[in-house]
């Protein structure tokens, strides 16, 4: 059964946007193209879709460029460590300045010395020599304790 030109236009109008977007099946696209060849009105509509599309693309460019990172970093830094994911490892050592690391390691050294004999009251043998070491990123602590000369040497290296 033949469809009237008016009906054909109505049917084409429904799928014209999809035709314009290339989203029709080959069969549907073929029928649509065939109608467009014979219908100036629908052809014009198709052309106008293209013009609107071009104008929209121009409009999209108006948004300009953005660089979000500086503000994002500030916000992340403000929110951490409550924010996720946790940056505990890295943050821990960036918060601790070298002076604090030195103090912390010295305190640790003191504890080691105490526990290695002084507090327990244990008499250390003659010529006793003990070396302890503690490592942290970018810092190393080494303790030498000798009984014979009563010397305790602490090295703090970076």
């Amino acid at each position: 059964m033949e469809t009237s030109p008016k009906t054909a236009c109505r049917e084409t109008a429904k799928i014209l946007a999809a035709y314009f977007d290339g989203e029709l099946s080959p069969r549907e696209a073929g029928l649509c193209a065939e109608h467009l060849r014979s219908c100036p009105r629908c052809r014009q509509a198709n052309r106008q879709y293209r013009e609107i599309s071009r104008a929209l693309v121009e409009l999209a460019g108006e948004g300009g460029e953005v660089s979000l990172w500086p503000k994002l970093l500030q916000q992340i830094e403000r929110e951490s460590p409550a924010g996720q994911p946790s940056r505990t490892g890295k943050r821990f050592f960036t918060i601790l300045r070298p002076a604090w690391i030195g103090l912390g390691l010295s305190a640790a050294a003191a504890l080691i010395i105490l526990f290695s004999g002084v507090l327990t009251g244990r008499q250390l043998p003659e010529n006793y020599c003990r070396i302890e070491s503690i490592s942290a990123p970018e810092h190393n602590l080494m303790i030498h304790r000798g009984q014979s000369d009563g010397l305790t040497i602490i090295w703090l290296t970076e």
Binding site: L72, Q75, Q84, P85
Partner: peptide, 15 residues
């Protein structure tokens, strides 16, 4: 811009 920033922050928290 604010919403894009918010989206990234939300994503970061939910990684």
């Amino acid at each position: 811009r604010d919403l894009a920033q918010e989206a990234f922050i939300k994503a970061y928290r939910s990684l």
